[in-house]
Design a protein around this nucleic acid. Structure first.
Lengths: 236, 236
DNA sequence: ATTTGTGAAATTATTCACAGCT
DNA sequence: AGCTGTGAATAATTTCACAAAT
C-alpha cells in the first residue's frame, strides 16, 4: 500500500495487464516514487541556465538529486522522447511534467483552518505559481472570522459547504487540530471535494474515490531523530 | 538512495554484512520505510483502549494503516518479542518504539525563521510531547526581533551560532525562504548542528555526517494533483 | 485457539550496460 | 562522440503461509 496516501484512490490497476507495457503514455498510473521524482525534476528545471535550451539526463538528475538512469526510466514511463546524443528540450520537458502532474489546470483550493499554518500556506508562492488558487478560507475561531488573509475573507466553519459549492473548490487543504480533522473532512467530502491535503496529525477515513494525502510534521522530526541516533549524528 | 533525506548520513552500511541478520537488535539501521511506519505504530498506540494492556499485530496494524505481516516484520527487525497467542504489551511496545526512534532523549531545537510556519511549529504540541524542546528562535526580520513566541524571545539571525552554542542545540528546524536556506544551513552546520529539518523549497548541500530532512509542501500538493487527475478524482 | 516470528515467494524499485539514434 | 531508451540484472520491500509458542 501507499504509505502517505490514505485512500485507495492512488492504488491503481494496471490498465494494460499483460506484457506489452512499453511506452505507457498517459494511460497507466505512474508509481508513487516516480511521481515524487517528477516534482523534483520540475523544480530542478528552474535551475538550468536561462540560455540552455536542452538538458541531459545526467545534468538534470544531478540537480534533482538522483541518477541519470532513474531519470530516464521515469521519463520513459511517460512516453517521452528526448533526443539521443542531445538531451531533453527544456521547454518541452517542463510542459510534459506540468501536464502529467496536472498543474496546467486550475485548482480551486478551499482552506480549512486559518491558524499560523493555514496562513503560511495561503501565502506560499509555490502554490499559486502552479495553478493552485485559494478560493475560500474558514475557521471556527470567531476571532478570526472576518479577518483577511491574502485577499480572502475568513468565514465561519459552517460555511464550508456553501463556499465549496459557490467557488467549485476541487481541492482542500486542512490545517485543523487532530480532533477536528475527521469532521472537517466529512463535511468536505459531503460537499463534493475529492482531493484533500491534510496537516492534521491523525489518520482520517474517507470513501473510495476520495484521496487524502497527509503531511505529518511530527513524523518527519521523529524520523530525523531516529537517523540522528542510529546514524551517529547525535552529539553527547 | 533515500528520497527525502539529502545527505548520506541516513544511507547506512549493513553492520552484519553476511547472512545471519536474524533479530538485528539495535545494531543495524532500519530501512526508512520501516522507520516511517514505526512512527505510525507509536501514534496508533495512543488509540488503543486505556484498559487494554496488550495489542495484537492485527489490531495495531489496522489502526496504523498497514497489515499485520508488515507490522510483525517491522517489529521483528528490532528484536522485539511479543507473546505468541497473546500479542504485544502496550506499555513495553511504546517504550521500545520511543527508544528506537530516539524520543527518550532531550532534543534541543533551534528554530530559524519565525514567520507563520515557524510559529505554527513552535506551538505544535506534537513536538514537545516527544522530547523536542525549542531552545531558541531567530529571524532576520527586525520587526519580529524582540517578539515572544511561546515563551521564547526572537533574536536576530546573526545570533544563530551563539544561541546554538549556549543552549547546545542538537537539532534545527528551518522555515526560511528558499533563497536563504543554504546560507542558514551553512551557519547551523558551522555552529555544530548535525540534524536539520528544512521546510525551504530547495535542496541544500551539507557535509557528510549532517542529515537534512526536507518537508516539501509544494511537492505534496503536486502529488495530490497528479493522483487526482490520473486516478479520476478530478471533477469536470 | 490465538497470535507471533520468519523463511520463502512475490512484487516492486533501482541500477547496469549497451544497442541505437542523432 | 554523445546521450537516450530499455531489456536484463540486481536489490529492496512486501506479502504469504505456516511452524512454534503460549
Amino acid at each position: 500500500m501507499n504509505p502517505d496516501s490514505e485512500s485507495d484512490a492512488a492504488a491503481h490497476l494496471e490498465l494494460f495487464p499483460s506484457g506489452h507495457s512499453t511506452a505507457a503514455s498517459a494511460n497507466t498510473v505512474l508509481p508513487e516514487a516516480t511521481v515524487r521524482r517528477l516534482t523534483s525534476y520540475l523544480r530542478a528545471l528552474d535551475l538550468v541556465n536561462e540560455e540552455q535550451t536542452t538538458v541531459s539526463s545526467q545534468g538534470l538528475a544531478e540537480a534533482a538529486g538522483t541518477n541519470s538512469a532513474t531519470l530516464r526510466k521515469d521519463l520513459s514511463l511517460m512516453g517521452t522522447y528526448g533526443r539521443r546524443g542531445v538531451g531533453y528540450d527544456v521547454k518541452l520537458l517542463r510542459e510534459l511534467l506540468e501536464n502529467t502532474l496536472g498543474l496546467n489546470r486550475e485548482w480551486r483550493v478551499m482552506l480549512v483552518g486559518a491558524g499560523n499554518l493555514g496562513r503560511a500556506l495561503a501565502g506560499y508562492a509555490g502554490f499559486s505559481s502552479h495553478g493552485f488558487r485559494f478560493v475560500g478560507v474558514v475557521d471556527n475561531n470567531p476571532d478570526l472570522v472576518g479577518m483577511k488573509i491574502h485577499d480572502l475573507d475568513v468565514s465561519s466553519s459552517d460555511k464550508i459547504s456553501a463556499i465549496v459549492t459557490e467557488h467549485r473548490a476541487n481541492l482542500a487543504v486542512v490545517t485543523v487540530p487532530g480532533a477536528a480533522a475527521q469532521h472537517v473532512v466529512d463535511e468536505l467530502v459531503e460537499a463534493g471535494v475529492r482531493n484533500i491535503l491534510s496537516f492534521a496529525p491523525v489518520r482520517v477515513t474517507v470513501p473510495a474515490g476520495v484521496t487524502v494525502r497527509r503531511v505529518d510534521v511530527a513524523r518527519e522530526i521523529q524520523m530525523l531523530a531516529y537517523f540522528a541516533v542510529a546514524g551517529g549524528g547525535m552529539d553527547k
